[in-house]
């Protein structure tokens, strides 16, 4: 009984502690970060029931293959991934066809020579450059990063006041927000401006981008309206291209996302029932004894 009271103390005191934390040092000299607010997008793969829109992934692959892949590799992916469940789910025949168009370096053969052959679904994505130095040499020093994990390797900084941050952390946890990387990539791809805002001098060889930290990026705007022809009638705009290729990159970074979220639901339901059963079991036992 007194235990219950003390638990209540524990709780109210925690609240007091949190308030204290907020008011303890409201100093005006806190460094104001230059973080850019990255707007959050609607994604099919967000939340507890998230899934990938297969048609979107296929369009995204088309954008990747025709635009990004010229400079950026995806070294963690195999061609077979393109037909696996939870991904773009191209037909096996289509994947064979896609793979066969790639020239894979293999060997050494019986004479000790490397040779090229056409790819198979079991091959990894063929990279645009044999190594980083070759990429740097071809691109004037700026190595185009590998994109297989890009959607998980970027996270936009919070652009909130320091005293509100804990609140936004809690909101992110409760809503299961894990799409920061995707939001950032979308903002980056749509963040190019023809003319940089007044007062910003863009260095030669760099381009102005609203979302990129520092606003000067070595990659020129890769997309333009009508650049790629969609077969399914989706409007051919930079916004759609960006959204589709971002979804594709999210899948590439997390190919088991659908499996994970589906299994998660089962596990959570199981644990919920188990917790209730354990509580009833515990209560049935403890009811008999004063405590």
């Amino acid at each position: 009984m007194s235990k219950i009271l003390s638990m209540r103390n524990f709780r109210t005191s925690t609240l007091g502690a949190a308030l204290l934390l907020v008011t303890a040092y409201a100093s005006p000299s806190f460094a104001a970060g230059e973080a850019v607010e990255i707007p959050r997008q609607e994604w099919t793969f967000s939340g507890m029931t998230g899934y990938f829109d297969k048609a979107q992934l296929r369009r995204g692959y088309q954008v990747y293959q025709n635009v990004c892949a010229v400079c950026h590799g995806m070294r963690q992916l195999y061609y077979r991934n393109l037909s696996e469940p939870g991904g773009p789910e191209f037909s096996d025949a289509r994947v064979k066809d896609i793979a066969s168009q790639a020239q894979v370096t293999d060997g050494p053969d019986d004479n000790g020579e490397m040779f090229t052959r056409s790819g198979t679904p079991a091959d990894k994505f063929v990279l645009p450059y044999p190594n980083e130095k070759a990429a740097a040499a071809a691109m004037g020093g700026a190595v185009p990063p590998d994109l297989s994990l890009m959607a998980k390797a970027r996270a936009p900084a919070h652009a909130h006041a320091w005293y509100t941050e804990p609140y936004f952390w809690m909101v992110d946890i409760v809503t299961g927000y894990q799409e920061g990387g995707a939001d950032y990539l979308y903002a980056l791809l749509t963040g190019y401006a023809d003319e940089p805002p007044a007062g910003i001098d863009v260095l030669p060889g760099l381009y102005y981008n609203e979302a990129f930290p520092g606003h000067q990026i070595a990659m020129p705007s890769p997309l333009a309206d009508g650049f790629i022809t969609y077969e399914d009638g989706t409007e051919e705009t930079v916004a759609n291209y960006s959204k589709d290729v971002t979804a594709f990159m999210m899948w590439a970074a997390e190919p088991k996302l659908e499996e994970r979220k589906k299994m998660g639901l089962t596990v959570m339901i199981y644990l919920g029932i188990f917790a209730i059963l354990m509580y009833l079991s515990k209560r049935a036992l403890w009811r008999k004894v004063p405590h």
Binding site: M48, I173, G176, Q178, K261, G264, V267, L271, G272, F274
Partner: peptide, 17 residues
């Protein structure tokens, strides 16, 4: 079991948070 619920929530829905 209750701790497991929180644990599972992070594993399945926010593994990288």
């Amino acid at each position: 079991a209750v701790f497991g619920l929180i644990f599972a929530y992070f594993v399945f829905y926010m593994p990288n948070y």
